[in-house]
Design a protein around this nucleic acid. Structure first.
Lengths: 164, 164
DNA sequence: ACTTTATGTCAGCCATGTTGACATATATCG
DNA sequence: CGATATATGTCAACATGGCTGACATAAAGT
């Protein structure tokens, strides 16, 4: 059924559609990030630790500078969570061989284990959404999310997601 | 443009693909939320204020309890930002007529103006992503995001997004 | 040798979330 | 009517995780 507004006032509908896209993203992200919290609480950790575990897990031997670039936080902020993770034996540092100033970060076996537990609950949610929506919708989801990423960084980020 | 491989076969729920879906959501949300910050800074406001402006704007005469339910924060947390917004004349309260205990919230004209400025930059980003991805991708994006929302709340949330 | 880079650390501040306790006005129920 | 439940507000204390600024060290690069 054609809505009279779509021909009479296309701008209104366009804005309405955009607002819906914005709110959907808000709610989806809100619920998506809530999953791992109870697991983290068992360890006395927060979302900041989760993000570090995730990206170190995905990028073994990542340098501190690279990690800072991904997380978009200051080294002082990272320091707090990273120190905790190192002390808990979840992350390990090794001096870079090519550049010995670098402290390359990797998960320990214990860290990898926790990371898998955290991923598992998030993956379960995404898997369910993918399954319900179907492969074609998944392709659209990815296409739009890619377009939401800052243009001047998009290429680099997409490569970091796909490589390995 | 780097292409994230999407397979059409029924094994598309591979862990690697799920991980990509998770990271894309992280990056997209990170950049998506970064847009309004500079505008808010001009007013000495933060993201918490933005969320209130957004949802009050979308739900005029919303009760405090309803707003708390959407934001999933405590009334004490809301109190801080709401008090600021009231003092700045961006939000107004009016006693409910049906239930006079309620303080129904709406944007003032000044608040609506700021809200439009904030929406504008986010809408621009979403509009660009939609345009680049195409209508079919947008449908998939929405379908997957809906699936990511907590199941027991999904219906209620979708109605609140679509109605009006 | 000098400069730049990668990293660490100390100190303090701010925004925004939490819990717990208690107050008030109004609605609703027996 | 009186008792209880509900919607909201407020005070106080605390936690997390951002931020800036200043300064230190080791190693790399010129």
């Amino acid at each position: 059924m054609a809505d009279i507004k779509s021909s009479a006032n296309p701008l209104f509908l366009r804005e309405e559609e955009l607002r819906q896209g914005i709110e959907l993203l808000f709610y989806a992200y809100r619920d998506f990030t809530s999953d791992p919290d109870s697991i983290l609480a068992d360890y006395g950790l927060g979302r900041a630790h989760h993000r570090v575990l995730h990206f170190v897990g995905r990028n073994p031997k990542i340098s501190v500078a690279e990690l800072l670039g991904i997380l978009r936080i200051t080294k002082q902020s990272l320091s707090r969570v990273l120190t905790t993770l190192l002390e808990m034996g979840l992350v390990q540092q090794r001096q870079g061989t090519r550049d010995r100033r670098q402290r390359l970060l990797s998960l320990t076996e214990k860290g990898a284990e926790l990371e898998r537990r955290l991923s598992a609950v998030q993956q379960a949610r995404v898997a369910r959404a993918y399954r319900e929506a179907g492969a074609e919708a998944v392709a659209g989801y990815r296409k739009v999310l890619q377009g939401l990423i800052d243009e001047h960084e998009r290429e680099k980020i997409l490569q970091s997601i796909v490589r390995r």
